[in-house]
Design a protein around this nucleic acid. Structure first.
Lengths: 88, 88
DNA sequence: TTCGTATATGTGTAATAGCATATATTCATG
DNA sequence: CATGAATATATGCTATTACACATATACGAA
């Protein structure tokens, strides 16, 4: 499907928001959130941008040659954890 | 207005495409491209994503704390040029 | 002027968005 | 197990709007 929508769903879940709460913050009905997350509808740009912001994210336009780097930074894993440890 | 749309427009221009050519690659009429770029309409997610790809870009969902870094990478300037040179 | 490009307008259609409701599904708790 | 509450998905029915298509206007350059 659309990976962006999947990312949005997990972002919402990580915020601990259910679809109805999420929708209320956006002024959207729960049913619509559901349809969007499952890819049953093609939402408007403003809708997705709003959803992103509520979920502490941002919708950005990225030049293709930077995509791999950014992908690594975002889904590369939890960078609360160090990526390597010095030899002891 | 929406900075993302402005970015899309300059991305198209940098590709040397006029609205009509751009639209043809997308299966969209020129009039629609015009309305979108001027913020007179709220396009669908798929439309914007398609426009991004044609313009050699990608629409990405980015965690808020990474936004400044990515902004620096993208609009930070031409990184064909090295950001520093070693002392000689 | 004529040509190329960008923006504007109007009409018809298809799809999103709003609203209410129905149907799972899971998970407690008696 | 049964029952009920909380969550997620589904459906039907309107209203609003993106989108398709044609056409018109504006403006600058050759």
């Amino acid at each position: 499907m659309n990976t962006l929508l999947k990312q949005l769903k997990t972002a919402r879940q990580e915020k601990g928001l259910k679809q109805s709460e999420f929708g209320k913050k956006l002024g959207l009905p729960q049913s619509h959130i559901s349809r969007i997350e499952r890819g049953k509808t093609d939402p408007r740009l403003s809708t997705v941008a709003d959803m992103a912001r509520i979920a502490d994210h941002e919708l950005m336009l990225v030049p293709r040659r930077l995509v791999p780097v950014i992908r690594f930074m975002t889904e590369g894993g939890n960078d609360q954890e160090p990526m390597w440890k010095p030899d002891e």
